[in-house]
Write a protein that binds this DNA or RNA. Structure first.
Lengths: 343, 343
DNA sequence: CTGTTAGCGCCTTCAG
DNA sequence: CTGAAGGCGCTAACAG
């Protein structure tokens, strides 16, 4: 026997009062007599009543929900970011609907549609690795749907965003390698169309130029973020002549497999090859040697992202000026890039 | 100007036909004339119509959604599991609503409530670390709400579950250490009330007993899964006399920091201390030395979990017999536990 | 083949 | 302070 769902109507009938009175009592509206309110609450508790959120949202035409689109939750960076986003959203009284694109452009598109169908009031998006056109995002902005991009964005999308200064961070990290005696610095980059990767490449190249070092194209290799590919590209890079004595990596996710295979190959870090990377995942500190890495303010990024979205959600006017929040990063220096002889 | 949401009614008015005809046309019901169907589809596409899922679900009293409750998505194991669950659910035409408890009992309770309010049709749950009473879960089973526990379960909950044989896996791993010459084997366990941890402890102790080795209580230490605590407990364990020459760890999440601090301390792996662990996360292979670890069939676990839930969702009778699916694990042997001299 | 009606569970006027 | 009525967007009989 299927127990009939406990609804406002059920409670009302049981108590021989009207449905609307029950609704008011349960929502703590002041104009309900104390004893009927008490009776309602008692019965509701007893029956374990939970409001049907679908119905509430439908009636309100308001879900108090925001959609979050992540490239992949298997990256520690994004799952950590999700935590801060969830917390910030909760504090503001919003729920979060999370989707992962699994780095796929197609999946990103269907995820956005699903979130739209679920009537999310706004979007928080970091682009998937494979996303190389942006009509699905622009469709959102055209409809004036509140949207904030974070971390992985793209140029030309008319949306607010929360990002770091990738160019500057890469510039600094490269200078750090140079200061530690590196003369021939390689770069393991992300996919060629990934903007934040390209910005980091540009910063790296600018630093080389600034210090009169030659940026050799054969020392710039692209990776797709899989460990296998990272290993392969690392080996390829090290087979170039002259071999690099320094290495900047676009992400710890690539740096870890790289360090692994370098150890296998008997290449000493940092003596033969100094390494610096991005994201400063917890595991970077647990490497031997510890991995020098650009730390991103994950907590702040999550909070800022939500803050910018809330601003749009609460805005009176439709056309809010776009904002770009650039967060500060910090190079966390560990042994992987420290050479005794230099600096 | 806020663009009025595009609804069935809007399309119907524009086309001067009835709302239900539009509905039928859009859902591909056969009894609609070809040309009106075409007109409807054209306009819907033009207006970028997306059905309001809240309304659809309300009308159907059916959300085709299952709630997934994870201890934390920052653990690679669980985010990988989520991927396979999402895939299996999608194949069956279900959406997934994910929550993370952040290892908190309280958060787990509120997450369940939120998912109930969202009218999920069933639950997939792995218990949070801090969960040590189960009324919130039993409330679900009492209401006959479809539920499958996976990985982290508890005894006495009347629910189907998908698990591994923790006792056997720990027994095997311990025997493997013994075969590699370990005489004094320590165990870094999880929190004292975590069933799967206790099962692993029992398996470890059984293996020791089987081989006539003494299970010293001072060689069994509990960790809370934070890296800091893992480091502290590792140091504490190694300060015991006699010092262990073998170590079993309840999870790679604890083994990684442990290996790190052991290296810091100049303790050689596996020469001084052979190590084996659980979960076989991708980083286990990237460690130096590679970490021997019990591999769980993540994909299969996700699929089985969904399959058992679907069975309940599609069941005619209310009271389906409970099922427990025990999946096979495999000890992936790497250098961390291999000693040349022994075996 | 199409329109009308009622209803999913809840909220919100508007009367009383 | 309480009840009745209408509506949120959609589906599902029931007529025609």
């Amino acid at each position: 026997m299927k127990n009939t769902p406990v609804t406002l109507k059920a409670i009302a009938q049981e108590l021989n009062i009207s449905l609307s009175t029950v609704s008011r009592a349960l929502r703590g509206m002041p104009e309900v007599r104390a004893d009927t309110r008490a009776a309602v609450h008692r019965l509701a508790a007893e029956l374990d009543y939970l409001p049907n959120q679908l119905a509430t949202s439908l009636a309100h035409s308001r879900t108090k929900t925001i959609g979050v689109l992540m490239p992949s939750l298997s990256y520690h960076f994004y799952s950590a970011l999700l935590n801060s986003i969830e917390e910030a959203a909760m504090q503001a009284g919003y729920s979060v609907l999370v989707c992962q694109a699994n780095e796929s452009h197609l999946r990103e598109i269907t995820n956005i549609q699903n979130l739209m169908r679920s009537q999310v009031e706004g979007f928080l998006i970091a682009l998937a690795r494979d996303t190389d056109s942006y009509e699905h995002i622009e469709r959102l902005t055209r409809k004036n749907i509140p949207l904030v991009l974070f971390d992985r964005y793209a140029e030309g999308i008319a949306a607010s965003k929360v990002v770091i200064d990738n160019h500057a961070a890469a510039f600094n990290a490269t200078e750090h390698l140079i200061a530690n005696g590196c003369q021939t610095i390689g770069f393991l980059a992300g996919p060629p169309h990934l903007l934040i990767s390209n910005q980091r490449v540009a910063g790296y190249q600018a630093a080389l130029a600034r210090h009169g070092l030659h940026a050799r194209p054969e020392h710039l290799l692209h990776c797709d973020f899989t460990p296998e590919n990272a290993v392969a590209q690392t080996l390829k890079l090290m087979s170039q002549r002259p071999a690099p004595d320094g290495l900047l990596v676009v992400s710890d996710r690539i740096a870890f497999p790289a360090m692994y295979v370098l150890r296998q190959e008997g290449i000493r870090i940092p003596e033969d090859l100094a390494i610096a990377s991005f994201n400063n995942e917890p595991y970077a500190a647990l490497q031997s040697p510890g991995l020098t890495s650009v730390s991103q303010p994950i907590q702040e990024m999550g909070f800022e992202t939500v803050r910018l979205l809330l601003k749009q959600l609460n805005a009176e006017s439709e056309q809010l000026p776009l904002e770009t929040k650039v967060l500060q990063t910090q190079l966390v220096v560990r042994e992987s890039s420290l050479r005794n002889g230099s600096n």
